[in-house]
Design a protein around this nucleic acid. Structure first.
Length: 596
RNA sequence: CGGGGCGUGGCGCAGUCUGGUAGCGCAUCUGCUUUGGGAGCAGAGAGUCGGAGGUUCAAAUCCUCUCGCCCCGACCA
């Protein structure tokens, strides 16, 4: 009963002065916008949800904002349920805080910096670890005041090199960011687990299919992280999931099982031989020229690791993963060497590098360590070696899991095999430890009377990106198919035709739906039916009710869910309660109704 | 930051090579007809051709410089 009351309250608030289409700013467009590359961007523009103001900067129009507010509200409810408190920090941050954490110097041009009238340095916050840490260290002294988990929902700015894909990669974007403060690692780990579960609830409630995957911690630092990936063909991120155990990870991070030890029979002990390969630079060229498979070739890449050259080896059909390489070497920066460095270190042009006799530290992917009878570059123009036996011919500094995971690879946890998915990253949770608390002296007095740094975690959700991901995952050729919990409205009511009795019935039903606590968009425009149908499909409101001349004469309305498009005629007398019941039943399909 | 492309009524584009009255489709407005899957006819309004210099009798068009946007790559929530 409380639930009905709440829904009615929400609907009344949502109704505002009017949800009549004729009075609203819903600028739909027929033509596909020229500069939109991904479907969510196309549909958000076409459905009149957003408009671009500048590169990566958008207006959120009324229907678009309704979606963002729905997502925000779900996040807010679940964060509060998990014990977090909402606050709001400034978008503009003084440079001093960022200098204190060191990120003023490390962050690079993505941090939008500017000066005020006095010439003092400021930035627009791309994230808020500095501000929150400064706040908490100033206000919290004792272990008795911990733990704390504080969050905000706010616009952030990252001056992306290349903003694109609409809200998927904007420069200004709305983000929920939360920061937890605990007395020790153990308590912080409990908090991290709690946030992990909260995130699962949030995306479940949004009605999205997603996977939580192990992730690299990137620049934010810390030692434990999960990304929440909404599964969609068009996702930018590649993730793998084990077919046998629960392990799932970003391909950048996914631990690949060690290859089985090759039997002696498959280790041909043949001599190293230099062969001419004029002009054959790429793996494919060398493979077809020497009539071998790419996996029999050792690919040798020269990297600059914190400025120093190093050779990294992987199999010809594999890809070196720079994230893993950086982690393996405990380096800050890993980048492919330029041609000049390659020629200097290998004494050969790019395309002929090899590990034999190379005067550089060499690291190898685990799959390379057991290669016999292989092919590699000879560090000499137009020459390769055949008969390479890695253990015999190459001095390796170390061996590790250095390549990007692929479908079918062995799971590093259980030995099962990986399936590949694509996803849109909508959230990430980080276990930060004392990375910020220590340098910024965010400390508390413990029971032992001594000062300790607080142990932190941070937890982000891209609100606009979640909306975009929902569209990537839920659309067809005609438009968006919103999951009910985040749809701009629940029911799209259409009046078809100019006959006064049709308008009268539709008007009455509009009010009846509102009285039933239904969020309804009422298309009362004097457009032809075709126009209204097309706009309804484009907007993607989950349920459509059409009132037409025939229906009014026969005493029924036409009910059609957007997703399956199974049209049924429902008597006018019960259509409102039919809608109410359909909404309740659909909402119950989300885990929100599972006991807290 | 490297490479490529584009800036012309609200939107999408043609015109630029070869300088000579700025055009098309959609949208908008008016009228009549039409009303179950983006209607028809008739009429109308709306553009400093991204900006600044220059060449020329004459510049959307040629030259120089700028600004913005998009795509590919490197980088990232």
């Amino acid at each position: 009963m409380w639930r009905r009351a709440r829904l009615e309250r929400c609907a009344r608030r949502a109704e505002g002065p009017s949800m009549r289409y004729s009075k609203m700013l819903i600028p739909t467009v027929k033509e596909v916008p020229a500069d939109a590359q991904v479907i969510s961007h196309v549909l958000m523009l076409r459905a009149g949800l957003i408009r671009k103001v500048a590169a990566g900067i958008y207006n959120y129009l009324p229907l678009g904002l309704r979606v963002l507010r729905k997502i925000e509200q779900i996040i807010r409810e679940e964060m509060v349920r998990a014990g977090a408190q909402e606050l709001l920090m400034p978008a503009v941050n003084p440079a001093e805080l960022w200098q204190e954490s060191g990120r003023w110097y490390k962050y690079g041009p993505e941090l939008l910096r500017f000066k005020d009238r006095k010439g003092a340095d400021y930035c627009v916050g791309p994230t808020h670890e500095e501000v929150i840490t400064a706040l908490v260290r100033g206000e919290v002294r004792s272990y008795k005041e911990l733990p704390l988990n504080l969050f905000q929902i706010q616009s952030k700015f990252r001056d992306e090199v290349r903003p694109r894909f609409g809200l998927m990669r904007a420069r200004e974007f709305i983000m929920k960011d939360a920061y937890s403060f605990d007395v020790d690692e153990k308590a912080a780990a409990v908090c991290y687990e709690g946030m992990y579960r909260t995130y699962c609830r949030i995306f479940d409630r949004c009605g999205l299919r997603f996977r939580a995957v192990e992730a690299d911690t990137g620049n934010i630092g810390g030692n434990r992280s999960h990304e929440f990936q909404v599964l969609a063909e068009s996702g930018e991120d590649a993730i793998v999931a084990c077919s046998q155990c629960s392990y799932a990870a970003n391909v950048e991070k996914a631990a690949i099982g060690a290859p089985p030890v090759a039997p002696a029979a498959s280790r041909p002990d043949i001599p190293l031989q230099k062969v001419a390969t004029p002009g054959q630079r790429t793996i494919d060229e060398v493979a077809s020229f020497l009539k071998v498979e790419p996996q029999q070739i050792v690919k040798s890449l020269i990297y600059l690791v914190d400025g120093k050259p190093l050779a990294a080896l992987c199999r010809g059909d594999h890809e070196i993963n720079e994230v893993k390489l950086r982690a393996h070497l405990r380096a800050d920066e890993v980048m492919l060497a330029d041609d000049a460095t390659i020629e200097q270190t290998t004494h050969a042009p790019c395309g002929f590098a090899g590990p034999v006799g190379l005067d550089l530290p060499i690291v190898a992917d685990q799959a390379v360590a057991q290669m016999f009878g292989a092919v590699c570059g000879a560090n000499e123009k137009d020459m390769h070696f055949t008969g390479l036996a890695v253990p015999r011919d190459v001095k390796l500094q170390s061996i590790g899991d250095l390549r990007t995971a692929r479908a079918g690879d062995t799971c590093g946890r259980c030995g099962g095999s990986f399936e590949l998915h694509r996803g849109v990253e909508v959230g990430q949770v980080f276990f930060l430890g004392t990375k910020y608390a220590a340098p910024m002296k965010c400390v508390y007095l413990g029971e032992d009377g001594k000062e300790h740094p607080m142990v932190m975690g941070c937890y982000g959700i891209g609100v606009g990106r979640t909306a975009a991901a929902a569209i990537e995952q839920n659309h067809d050729d005609d438009g968006i198919i919103w999951p009910l919990p985040i749809a701009p409205c629940q029911v799209h009511l259409l009046s078809l035709g100019p006959q006064p009795e049709v308008v009268q019935v539709a008007d009455r039903l509009y009010h009846e739906l509102l009285e039933h606590g239904v969020e309804v968009l009422y298309d009362d425009r004097s457009e032809r039916p075709g126009v209204k149908f097309k706009d309804a499909d484009l907007l993607g409101i989950p349920f459509r009710i059409a009132i037409g001349g025939k229906g009014v004469a026969g005493g029924y309305a036409e009910w059609r869910p957007r997703r399956d498009r199974q049209t049924v005629n429902v008597p006018l007398a019960v259509i409102a309660s039919h809608a109410r019941a359909a909404i309740d039943s659909e909402m119950r399909r989300t885990p929100a109704e599972i006991a807290p």
